[in-house]
Design a protein around this nucleic acid. Sequence first.
DNA 1: CTTGACTCCGTACCATACTACGTGTATTAT
DNA 2: ATAATACACGTAGTATGGTACGGAGTCAAG
Lengths: 133, 133
Amino acid sequence: MSEYFVGQIAEEVGINVETIRYYEKLKLLPKPKRRESRYRIYDETDLKRLSFIKRAKELGFTLKEIKELFGLKIDSDARCGDVKHLTEHKLKDVDNRISDLKKIRHVLVKLITQCVNEEVSSDECPILESIEI
Amino acid sequence: MSEYFVGQIAEEVGINVETIRYYEKLKLLPKPKRRESRYRIYDETDLKRLSFIKRAKELGFTLKEIKELFGLKIDSDARCGDVKHLTEHKLKDVDNRISDLKKIRHVLVKLITQCVNEEVSSDECPILESIEI
DNA sequence: CTTGACTCCGTACCATACTACGTGTATTAT
DNA sequence: ATAATACACGTAGTATGGTACGGAGTCAAG
């Protein structure tokens, strides 16, 4: 199992060293093992965790929400019913996001097709039709 | 066609009045018509636009990206090829977002199923398995 | 025709999520 | 062995996206 210093894992994931320390402070990352020199030691699990944080952020989750996602597991302390309830809530949220992204996707595809067919130009903004609330 | 003052449209969409002025400053909203009193007048198109901004933000688009999405249209100034290129780029991005959200979705569903079946508990964090970069 | 709610604008402040800086210690390449 | 990097830590600064404030003008119900 490979080990990393903070700079190496930062490089690997493509985020800043300072950001990793920041996530640790927010408890998005567990306290890492240390060398005697106090240097932090990371492993593959930390790498996965950081990659997840990075992408989830891009997908519109806040750091607080990401922390909640990490908490979704059936462990000795969490009752199954609680986890299930929370998870179902998250699932509904994710489904809504996917649904709305598909609406945006549909309009983008339509726009590309219009270009190909060299249809009439328009000063209207087609993206506005994508999401009706 | 119904018209709104800023407070009414803000109420309708569920955002702050100040935020609307802020979006106007950033040119996410066109300059609205005014009464002689200088009061801003909005219509249904503005309402759609604001709803879109609100949701797109929740889906992880920055205000800058949202502005770009609004710009995706075939008008008298934009050459079709340019728009097509840009739009294809956005489409790829949206597809990736949908794909990764589906991975997260899959893990959430699995977690709920585990609960139902009262399977073994674990101290592992299952969400970590959802996105492999 | 007044009173309360709404709007105007500029400016200042706020929360989230970083990012940089400085000082000191550790590691590593030559 | 020594110089260039890298890391530790605390603190301060930045960017984005709002949110609040205050004084003046506007609207509209009684």
